Amino acid sequence: MTLPLVAVLDYGSGNVRSAVRAVERAGAQVELTSDPRKVAEADGLLVPGVGAFEACMRGLEAVDGVRLIERRLIASKPVLGICVGMQILFGEGIEHGVQTQGCGEWPGVIERLQAPIVPHMGWNTVVPGGAAKGSRMFAGIEDERFYFVHSYGLRDWVLSRPPALPEAQVTWTEYGGDRFVSAVEDGPLWATQFHPEKSGDAGRRLLQNWIATL
């Protein structure tokens, strides 16, 4: 049996080796690449991300990553964004007064968390919005905790969609009196604010759930 092939997008966003190893342990072949052909032909594309929104967008644009992601989604080919790799999928990010345009796959603004202690670092629970409707992302791990490291997030999101399209399944997390989107499952496009590769058995199961859709 041939294992599915996951391309991890290489656009200069920090240390991605942990993500590569985690996907391998979850049961897929992995290639770290920014080659357009390999990204297009892979069964799944994982978009990692650490650091500032603006820096990640610069790196993404340098390898034509926005177009590569868009072309996969047009073809209904699975994409998974992690941490800032999730944030850049939204319309824009604002950090230190700097406004940066994102990929625009979803509407929304990434902004600083309004909590007494930032960054939000450590284990936290999530509330899967799609669990009652059969979430594939959180199948078998609806009540688990996941590992977060971030200072920014999507705190206010009203998803506006044409009626013909399915609604995204949106997962929320509360921290320090604030609330932010911690995961989205929307057809071929999945994303998590937390780090599955740092979330132990629960994170491995989530990656396995994603790989099962490839």
Rank of each mutant, 00 (worst) to 15 (best):
V79R: 00
K133I: 09
V118M: 05
T213R: 15
G85N: 11
T171C: 07
F138Q: 09
P128K: 11
V184R: 09
A75C: 08
N15H: 01
L5R: 14
P119C: 11
E61D: 15
E92P: 06
G91D: 15
E142V: 11
P163N: 01
A62I: 06
R161P: 01
W106A: 00
V158A: 00
H96E: 14
G129F: 08
F148Q: 00
R17L: 11
T2K: 14
E70Y: 07
D178A: 15
P196L: 10
R72Y: 00
R145C: 01
T192Y: 05
H150C: 02
I117K: 15
G59E: 03
E61G: 10
T125L: 04
S135V: 01
F146C: 06
V98L: 14
S182L: 06
L207Q: 12
T173E: 06
H150A: 02
V63M: 09
G176E: 07
V158P: 00
G97A: 14
R145M: 03
R71W: 00
G91M: 02
F148P: 03
A7Y: 10
Y11P: 03
L45E: 02
I141L: 02
V127H: 08
R37C: 02
M137E: 02
E24F: 05
V170Y: 05
S199N: 02
T33Q: 03
Q193H: 05
R72A: 02
E24M: 09
R17D: 02
L207P: 10
I110G: 08
E31Q: 12
G176R: 08
G140N: 11
L214M: 12
Y152G: 00
R17Y: 07
A131Q: 14
A19W: 09
R21W: 10
R179L: 04
F180W: 03
S151D: 10
Y175W: 08
S18W: 04
S160E: 13
Q193R: 02
V50G: 03
T125S: 13
Q87V: 05
G177A: 12
C83G: 08
V20I: 02
F180N: 12
V47A: 07
V170C: 09
P116K: 07
M121H: 12
G130T: 14
L80F: 06
M1G: 12
E185V: 01
I211W: 03
